[in-house]
Design a protein around this nucleic acid. Structure first.
Length: 414
RNA sequence: CGGGGUGUAGCGCAGUUGGCUAGCGCGCAGCGUUCGGGACGCUGAGGUCGGGAGUUCAAGUCUCCCCACCCCGACCA
């Protein structure tokens, strides 16, 4: 991709009125644009990152048997009456009448929909367990949208639903899902910590949240520095400086961004919708369910809160919008080595953004820092026939031939 | 929903006790010179001053109402 033709128009200064780091950097670097509070467009760069995150999520969820579907956001009131949640969620659900006076809601979540979908098709223990998920937009009329991508009113969510014969089978899958979740967060470059949390009004059982420790977070976490124990302060009997019940170390306090959660739903929804199966003895049993959420957009925000410096974003290699940012600083346009490098990267499947704009070197370098692509290659008269390679995170710089650059890239993105 | 802050060109801002045709920097278009950390000169385009009502000879500026955005809190299947 030639940068002069790419829709990336950075701002000299971060937008006024934004305080949160992810909002400042993402808007300044042309990844997202705000339409209203808590509602954002993903521009070409931003969508690339979002798609990378989604691809990792899909891989990991497919690995634990997930089958992808796509449910509607628009839903009839009657669906929500089955669980009495039309009234219960009326503060947060966008509810309206269409032209024929039908009451419609924009989905805040999809437990009702998924249960209504599977109830008539699943009749036997032989059909269980199975796992359906989607990546789809949710709508929540948040009283206060805030912090850029951290709390939005329209936002993407990966929601997975699992269906089981009994608690025991659910528990087994629940554990598998934890592992998949840790994989996902680590692959997008985040250290996550799993905590017990309240299930809210929704389930009496505790749920588990995956938190990324960050001052930008809204949750308050008590955790062990060895990461073997953590609880949301809402429900914790421990406080800062108490001893860790597992290892005895002194517990610490931090704010956290909730990037994922998993809930055991039990039979609340299956009973409300009449989702039953016949067990081996021919007896009718309610399907046991759980749900598992991750917000890819929020994840993107969290990545920036953790990975940035004074000059801009530092994308972890797993999600970087392009693998390579090629910058041509030569006085003479159309430098042959730059073109050769560009095509070689393409041929080797390294997505490359090629800055061949007719602007001063300072602008190109500042923009590259801000945009934050993991690897930068510089072609310049100063370097003669060598290519300069710099990693965005460590700033480590080295000089290479084209062949050796490709080797480095293969090693880095293995 | 309570409290606080902000709103003037695409972006960032200035605009005095109300007073001439509303300015500056960046960006944008044209020409020339520059070229490894946001270069320079000249020329040019770009404005419902968030919206409405009011006071006044006169409102970006004063009064009232409303709207939007940001922050704190409440809320957060």
């Amino acid at each position: 991709m030639y940068q002069s033709h790419y829709f990336v128009k950075t701002l000299r200064e971060p937008p006024k009125n934004e305080v949160s780091i992810n909002a400042k950097l993402l808007e300044q670097a042309c990844y997202i644009q705000k339409l209203m509070a808590g509602v954002y467009t993903y521009l070409p760069l931003g969508l690339r990152v979002l798609n990378n995150i989604n691809a990792i999520i899909r891989e990991e969820i497919n690995n634990i048997g997930g089958q992808e579907i796509y449910m509607p956001a628009m839903q009839p009131k009657e669906l929500w009456d089955k669980t009495n949640r039309w009234e219960e969620l009326s503060n947060i659900m966008y509810q309206f009448k269409d032209k024929s006076d039908h009451l419609i809601g924009l989905a805040t979540t999809h437990e009702e929909t998924i249960t209504s979908i599977i109830k008539d098709r699943i009749n036997s223990y032989k059909d269980l367990p199975f796992y359906l998920y989607q990546i789809q937009d949710k709508f929540r009329n948040e009283p206060r949208a805030k912090s850029g991508l951290i709390r939005g009113r329209e936002f993407a969510m990966k929601d997975l639903y699992s269906f089981h014969q009994d608690e025991e089978d659910l528990d087994e899958y629940y554990k598998k899902s934890m592992k998949a979740y840790f994989n996902i967060f680590s692959r997008v470059g985040l250290k996550s910590i799993m905590i017990e949390a309240s299930g809210g009004a929704f389930t009496k059982q505790y749920s588990h949240e995956f938190q990324v420790l960050s001052e930008a977070g809204e949750d308050r976490i008590i955790y062990c520095p060895k990461y073997d124990f953590a609880q949301n302060i809402e429900i914790s009997k421990f406080k800062e400086e108490d001893k860790c019940p597992k290892c005895g170390r002194l517990l610490k306090f931090s704010k956290g961004i909730e990037v994922g959660n998993i809930f055991k739903l039990g039979t609340r929804f299956s009973q409300a919708f009449g989702a039953y199966y016949l067990d081996k003895t021919g007896k009718k049993q309610p399907i046991v369910m759980a749900s598992y959420g991750i917000g890819p957009g929020r994840l993107m925000g969290a990545i920036i809160e953790v990975h940035h410096d004074n000059n801009g974003i530092i994308w972890p290699p797993g999600v970087t919008p392009f693998k390579v940012h090629l910058i041509d600083l030569c006085k003479q346009k159309n430098n042959p080595l730059a073109k050769k490098t560009y095509h070689a990267c393409q041929e080797n499947n390294f997505d490359i953004l090629y800055d061949e704009r007719d602007v001063s070197p300072g602008i190109k370098l500042k923009d590259a820092d801000l945009i934050g692509i993991s690897v930068r290659l510089i072609i310049s008269d100063k370097n003669k026939d060598k290519i300069e390679l710099t990693y965005r995170d460590t700033k480590e710089t080295s000089h290479h031939s084209l062949v050796s650059v490709l080797k480095e890239l293969k090693k880095y993105y293995k």
